[in-house]
Simulated assay, not measured.
Amino acid sequence: MKSTMQKRGGLVLMLAACAGLGACASQPQTMYQWEGYQPHVYSYLRGDQKSGPDKQIAEMEEDLQKIRAKGNTPPPGYYAHLGMLYASIGNNSMMLQNFQAEQKLFPESAPYMNYLLSNLKK
């Protein structure tokens, strides 16, 4: 009977130690910093007239500065969306710059960025 109690005590002690170590673990770092990216995309796709391209560009550029200041990376699509906003106001040089930034950070986006650029030239 005593050996069963010792086994249970050891098990309880081991579980308590595991729980204690788990509580000490640090929070995982996110891979990207999103800031207001998702609401901007949603607003754009909804065709929200209150938040026109100029306002969204200004807010996204400001968010980009915050992301860079913290040493983080914007999420996939951030530069592409910003480029699309610049294209919508006719600023093709900034559009191209943002599409190239998207391709540099996320090489898998190259086919789509090239597709968008080829359609722009037509």
Rank of each mutant, 00 (worst) to 15 (best):
H40E: 11
H40G: 03
H40I: 06
H40K: 09
H40P: 01
V41C: 04
Y44K: 10
L45F: 07
G47Y: 01
G47H: 02
D48T: 00
Q49V: 13
K50N: 13
K50S: 12
S51D: 10
G52C: 03
D54L: 06
Q56G: 00
I57F: 00
A58L: 08
E59N: 10
M60E: 13
M60L: 15
M60P: 11
E61M: 11
E61H: 05
E62N: 12
Q65G: 13
I67G: 08
I67W: 06
R68Q: 14
A69L: 02
G71S: 01
G71Y: 00
P74I: 04
P74H: 07
P75Y: 03
P75V: 08
Y78W: 13
Y78A: 08
Y78Q: 10
A80T: 12
H81I: 07
L82T: 08
L82K: 07
L82Q: 07
G83D: 11
L85H: 04
Y86V: 03
Y86G: 00
Y86T: 01
A87M: 14
S88R: 13
S88I: 06
I89H: 05
G90N: 05
G90I: 06
G90A: 04
S93D: 15
S93W: 06
S93T: 14
S93V: 11
M94A: 10
M95S: 11
N98Y: 02
N98T: 03
Q100N: 14
Q100C: 05
A101K: 12
E102D: 08
Q103I: 09
K104F: 10
L105E: 10
F106S: 12
P107D: 09
P107N: 07
P107G: 05
S109M: 14
A110G: 02
P111S: 03
Y112E: 15
Y112S: 15
Y112R: 15
M113T: 11
L116H: 08
L117F: 02
S118R: 15
S118E: 15
